[in-house]
Computed example of a mutant assay.
Amino acid sequence: MLQSIPTIDICTLADDIKQDDILISRFAPYLDAHKNLFFPHRHSFYHLVLFTDGAGSHTIDFESFTVKPGQIYFMVPGQVHSWSFEGFTDGYIINFSGSFIQSFLLRSGYFDNFSFLSSSNPADEVIDIPAEHLPVIINLFESIIAEAESNEAMGSDMVKLLMLQIFIQLSRIQGKDENRGRQGYNHTLIRNFQKMIEQHYIDVKLPKDYAEMLYITPNHLNAVCKDVLGLPAGEVIRNRTLLEAKRLLTNPKLSISEIAFNLNFSDNSYFTKFFKKIEGITPEEFRKKTLNNKQ
């Protein structure tokens, strides 16, 4: 499938990464070294930033957030991201692969406990840290910076432990503790449905086909989606296709016909009708609006 925008890999960001699958830095020098990352791009890794100074905005999958001190945001691989800062901006940044933390855990699905690591919904990934919790989070980031610079024995394991402390603290702030991963059959079913959509949304369009893969009836799948997500199953599938269409439309080198083909629409007209019915504007209008906003 054609890529709409550049995909950034950890190894392209630094030539001297001391630990496999992870990059740790204070944010100001990272930003200074990577000025080219202001344009929209994807990551092939998990990405988290804690702001301690600065203002402006950052956008995740076309949803914009105001930058402010005490805010932390996460990105999962594949999401489209860009930022625009006003004045001096600082904080901490950690880029890491899924295998970096998972290699330390016996439970392969442990990330599902944390909405900011298991969701592709930007609203779950941006957290405003209350003032009373901020010193604890900052101290953990400082400890990670110190470990990354120390070259002490088992430093990689210590970084993983400190990162897990950050995840657990943030999950508690969100009010979604470790019990989130044990909220019952319906939530497990929805997570599996969403993972299947991520793998098959281009070729599998109908709820009945996903229901068959999940060994349940279409009515059951639809009822659970409405109960947990507040949306019918078909809308969940269509929203994922729409998101990818938006991502592809950010690349002016791709024609509307090419995007329609890559999303498995039978023709350009059908794709345009699909997009306008959900978004309210045509793909061409969305592209013009989005690209004008980036100038």
Rank of each mutant, 00 (worst) to 15 (best):
M196H: 10
S269F: 11
N186I: 05
S156W: 05
K208R: 11
S266W: 07
F286G: 02
N239P: 04
T272Q: 14
P283L: 07
D203C: 06
M213L: 13
T272R: 13
K208D: 12
E212M: 09
N192T: 12
I173F: 01
G184T: 03
L229E: 14
A233S: 11
F261P: 00
A153K: 14
I168N: 09
G184M: 03
Q183N: 10
T272V: 09
I216F: 03
A260L: 09
S171W: 07
N264Y: 10
H187L: 06
D157V: 13
L161R: 09
E285P: 00
K195Q: 14
A245S: 15
N192K: 14
L242R: 05
L254E: 05
Q194V: 01
E178G: 08
L170T: 04
K208P: 02
L162W: 00
L263M: 09
P218D: 06
D157P: 00
L214I: 03
E212N: 14
N179H: 13
L170C: 02
D203Y: 12
K246L: 08
K160G: 13
E152H: 15
F167M: 10
D157C: 06
F261G: 02
Q199Y: 04
F193T: 01
N219Y: 06
I173P: 00
M196D: 14
V224F: 01
E244H: 15
M154S: 13
P232A: 02
I197D: 08
D203T: 10
K273H: 09
K246Y: 00
A211S: 09
S269D: 11
F286I: 05
Y201R: 01
I216K: 12
G155C: 06
I259W: 08
K246R: 12
K208A: 11
F265E: 08
K195W: 06
P207Q: 01
A233E: 09
A153H: 11
N239L: 12
E284N: 12
L248P: 03
K253F: 10
S266I: 03
E285S: 11
R247D: 02
Q165A: 14
S266L: 12
L214Y: 05
D203S: 09
F193C: 04
S269R: 12
G280W: 07
R182F: 15
F271Q: 03
R247K: 15
K226D: 02
K246Q: 13
T250L: 10
L229C: 10
K289N: 10
P218K: 00
M213D: 07
Q174F: 08
L206I: 05
E284L: 10
K276R: 13
G155A: 15
M158E: 13
T250A: 04
D227W: 03
A233I: 07
L249I: 01
I256C: 12
Q174C: 12
Y210R: 07
F274V: 02
S269K: 13
A211K: 05
D227E: 13
F274T: 01
I259R: 13
V204T: 15
Y215W: 01
E258D: 13
H200N: 13
L229I: 07
T217F: 03
L248S: 07
D227N: 14
T250Y: 12
P252M: 06
R238S: 15
F271R: 06
R238A: 15
L170A: 06
V159P: 00
R182A: 07
M196Q: 15
G230W: 11
F167P: 00
V236F: 08
F275N: 05
